[in-house]
Design a protein around this nucleic acid. Structure first.
Length: 873
RNA sequence: GGGUGUUUAGCUCAGUUGGUUUAGAGCGCUACCUUGACAGGGUAGAGGUCGGGGGUUCGAAUCCCUCAACACCCACCA
């Protein structure tokens, strides 16, 4: 026997993955079967596999492998996302290392570098997913910047623009001065920081009076165009209509009144800087104030910055505070803790900035998406608790800023022309744009060179929101066979952190573009956290190396480790010991196989009754478990499904079933039993395959030599049939009996099998309890026979004793029994109290009362028994 | 500031419309057994006033109120 005593995963993983790929088990084409489709949440093309990916891709693989075995046309479409900001930031950083500034490159040259980068590192993550065992249809791999995918994005932009849903607006946006781009609200992270609140004196024009204004950002005073007071603030009544002088800048600005101002905060005076604050912008518009933008795009001061021109904003702040101190206009500084918006990607402090941006109107688009999740249940969120979050966001949805000042992505298909580029048209290419522009301007002499395409690209999410449609080319060819067959998909598995960025928007685009939901179920995983409870992420660097884990424990073990305790929507505190548990499990199964394989088989002998009983029992138990597991799957309780299987295999199959079947040392076993055991083993492997694909496939081929068409990956998921519960109940009793006897194994020095035989051949004269299991008969009697009690066992809630010829310590036994008796009496008392409660009897359902009566009767029986036993001790 | 959710054994979590739960699982722990499948395996056991307080009910981990801690989301007050 050369089978190693431990399961070695590495070779097995490579072997079977390439086998599956070679035999083309994962790819899918439309046929007459029912489709089961999952689209992968596309990871960042230059990303590396982390725990979050492992978690949600394992889930998807489990679901799709089971679907495949259930006879669906399973199709899991993989792909990657261009992740405009993140990738561009990486490319810029890399170029910087080489001494190249982005600003020194043309758009074309930069994109060339970006593509080089993508080709070099892109797809690494997909290779890593293969290591994990992901059974994606790799022939369908998509990238959000593929030609067709980009064309789909442009097409959608044009379509929505022509519907009047996309518009251009001069808006306050989140500006990342580091990346020199706008960020969506979702990409801004607010951090608590200690700052200072500066009280600055503004002189009232033609008066000696000063007005004190509080601000956390003194440098923006250079862009002040008013100071605002509350109209009912008595302290400042006399200032109404007057003008102030901005310190340093010496500009004259008006005092305006607005009840927006909080009288209580600071000094009750608010400096208004329309160019650099969202609220100030609103005030500015209301009161028609001038807008003075004091920053360049990298947040250094521009020509409005006086002598501070060219300085970085934080540098300028220091200098300006100093200058105000010198001039006596800085009245006081106080510590002030406030929140500062930072860029998710570059960590730079974001700057509110006014600029031209493209927006998508969301309110109307959101309606079908609200309905399908919250009213019609066309789309199920798992777990349901996310419905509330979803509702809250959708009902307060704001227009989506879809432009980004980047180069890496789909360039916005808007073409400007005319005087100062004041006009524009939207078209899929320059030639079409030219025609449109000629029409729009009435100038038929326009040339291609008169058109200037918008410099910005579209938000990455504006391409990924089309993902379930565009990967089947359903945007450009809405009627093609693929999209008609695969769309809508079944399940989406992703993290709750992108419920809005992505999930909600896919639902919106699905209804807008195809009038149909993109998927039926959304399984939201938890975030993977480390032991300290911190979110695991690349940025924090606390994520364990996913591939190292696979190397160390094996892919199957890591999959099991991740699944073991990760209920949907609950965060998972990742602990490597779970992988060890997975590895132990793999090893256990491996060795169970070694045991079976090592048996000496005899063709001639008959199957002993005990084996027959055990096989019947396990068959029934198996059916019950299949039903349970299917039920767990239908509720997306993957973790529970695995735990159920884990217990079936470890406890019932290995610890009970195989122990009963296994021949004594040096003895042989009949062929019929071995065949039956191997069939049961195979059934176990079928259930196991989605969770542990490599190990299960390996053993599947050890058990029998099989053709490709018979591989486990494409075999049948066990059908959930009915079972005889009596078998299972009876065996539970047998287990308890044996458990009771086993305690005395040492004294008796007999094996497991003899124990069973002992029971089955027992010839106690007046049996009070007889349990039948197939042909196995356990006969149990109370201790009133000539023998001394050797051991006790419980059946249900009753305690019984087996007469055996060895004595137990009577003192210990008495103590134990007395304890049991007191407990039983207490219990009976509580039940009787309940039963004597009139309100209970008159109100509780018949079923419940019946149950209580039974409890009482059982307890009484037990008390009688115990008392009898005690008196005999 | 607004919202949502979580709080059950040492750890990670189940507990489905209040009633077969005198609260369960896995891991861990303790004791004993076992060296011919399994540097492991088996059996048994300990361990929880279900975050605190109040209420509804014949009956509450489960429903209501309140307080506390934690997490996340949204908005962002100079």
């Amino acid at each position: 026997m050369e089978i190693p005593s431990k399961f070695v995963s590495q070779n097995v993983e490579d072997k079977w993955y390439s086998y599956w790929m070679e035999k083309d088990f994962f790819s899918s084409l439309p046929d007459d079967r029912e489709p089961y489709t999952i689209v992968i949440p596309p990871p960042n093309v230059t990303g590396v596999l982390h725990m979050g990916h492992m978690l949600n891709n394992t889930l998807q693989d489990i679901i799709i492998r089971r679907a495949r075995m259930m006879g669906y046309n399973a199709c899991w479409v993989p792909g990657t996302d261009h992740a405009s900001i993140a990738t561009e930031a990486k490319v810029v950083a890399k170029l910087k290392e080489q001494g190249i500034e982005k600003s020194s490159l043309s758009r074309e040259d930069f994109l060339k570098h970006a593509w080089d980068w993508t080709h070099e590192y892109g797809g690494i993550i997909l290779e890593q997913l293969k290591k994990l065992g992901c059974s994606c249809d790799w022939s369908r791999t998509k990238f959000t910047l593929d030609e067709n995918m980009s064309a789909s994005v442009i097409d959608t932009f044009i379509r929505l623009h022509n519907k009047g849903l996309i518009y251009r607006g001069y808006r306050m946006v989140n500006w990342d001065p580091e990346a020199k781009t706008t960020l969506s609200d979702e990409e801004v992270i607010y951090e608590e920081r200690d700052g200072q609140l500066y009280h600055i004196a503004y002189s009232v024009l033609d008066s000696d009076e000063k007005v004190i204004v509080a601000t956390t950002r003194p440098e923006t005073l250079l862009g002040d165009t008013a100071v605002c007071i509350h109209p009912k603030d008595k302290r400042y009544f006399h200032l109404k209509g007057k003008q102030l002088v901005v310190p340093l800048a010496q500009r004259k600005i008006p005092i305006i009144e607005d009840d927006y101002v909080d009288i209580e905060f600071g000094t009750g005076c608010l400096k208004v800087t329309p160019a650099h604050d969202v609220n100030d912008k609103a005030l500015g518009e209301k009161h028609q104030l001038e807008v003075i933008d004091i920053f360049n795009e990298d947040a250094t001061l521009n020509h409005h910055g006086l002598e501070f021109e060219g300085m970085d904003r934080f540098e300028a702040r220091k200098k300006i505070v100093k200058a105000l101190e010198l001039s006596g206009e800085l009245i006081k500084k106080e510590n002030h803790r406030h929140k500062v918006g930072t860029s998710e990607r570059t960590k730079a402090v974001i700057e509110p900035r006014l600029s031209d941006q493209w927006f998508l109107k969301m309110e109307d688009l959101a309606q079908p998406a609200i309905k399908s999740v919250l009213q019609s249940d066309e789309i199920q969120l798992v777990p349901e608790k996310f419905k509330n979050t979803y509702r809250h966001w959708m009902e307060n949805i704001r227009d989506w800023n879809i432009s980004r000042q980047l180069w890496w992505g789909q360039q916005i298909p808007a073409y400007y022309f005319g005087k100062d580029n004041s006009q524009y048209v939207v078209a899929k290419d320059k030639a079409t744009a030219l025609e449109l522009a000629k029409g729009a301007s009435g100038n038929s002499n326009l040339q291609t060179s008169d058109l200037r395409q918008d410099e910005d690209v579209l938000d990455t999410w504006f391409s990924s929101w089309l993902w379930p449609i565009s990967i089947f080319n359903g945007v450009l060819e809405p009627d093609n066979p693929d999209v008609n067959y695969y769309y809508p998909t079944q399940d989406l598995v992703t993290g709750p952190d992108i419920l809005f960025f992505w999930v909600a928007r896919m639902i919106i685009s699905g209804y807008e573009l195809r009038q149909e939901k993109p998927f039926s179920n959304v399984y939201l995983t938890g975030l993977v956290r480390d032991k300290q409870g911190k979110k695991m992420s690349k940025q924090l660097g606390n994520s364990p190396d996913a591939l190292a884990l696979i190397d160390q424990y094996g892919a199957d073990a890591v999959r099991v480790g991740l699944m073991l305790s990760s209920a949907a929507g609950n965060d998972l505190l990742f602990d490597e010991s779970l992988c060890q548990q997975g590895k132990n499990f793999a090893n256990k199964i491996w060795n169970a196989y070694r045991l079976v394989e090592g048996w000496k088989v005899v063709e001639t002998s008959e199957m002993p009754p005990l084996n027959k009983a055990a096989i019947d029992w396990y068959n029934n138990l198996f059916q019950q478990v299949v039903n349970t597991i299917d039920d767990h799957f239908s509720k997306y309780r993957i973790s529970d499904a695995l735990m159920t299987l884990y217990k079936l295999i470890w406890d019932d199959f290995c610890s009970w079933f195989l122990e009963m079947i296994k021949p004594n040392y040096e003895e042989s076993i009949d062929k019929a039993t071995v065949i039956a055991v191997k069939t049961l083993f195979e059934n176990n492997l079928r259930l196991l395959h989605p969770f542990m694909p490599f190990l299960s496939e390996e053993l599947w081929h050890h058990i029998a030599k099989r053709e490709a068409s018979e591989a486990l990956v494409v075999s049948d998921w066990p059908k959930a049939l009915s079972w005889d519960q009596q078998y299972i109940n009876d065996f539970d009793i047998i287990k308890q009996i044996i458990g009771g006897i086993r305690n005395f194994r040492k004294e008796k020095n007999i094996g497991f099998k003899e124990q069973l035989t002992l029971i089955s051949e027992s010839s106690i004269p007046h049996p009070e309890v007889v349990v039948k299991l197939g042909q196995l008969v356990a006969v149990i009697d109370q201790v009133e026979e000539e023998g001394q009690p050797l051991g006790s066992f419980r059946v249900g809630q009753s305690e019984f004793f087996i007469p055996i010829n060895e004595a137990v310590d009577p003192v210990e036994e008495r103590k134990k029994l007395t304890q049991e008796l007191e407990y039983a009496k207490g219990f009976l008392k509580s039940v009787e109290k309940k039963l004597s409660n009139e309100r209970f009897v008159s109100n509780a359902p018949e079923k419940v009362i019946e149950l209580e009566r039974k409890k009482a009767a059982d307890a009484q029986d037990k008390i009688d028994l115990l008392e009898k036993s005690l008196s005999q001790l």
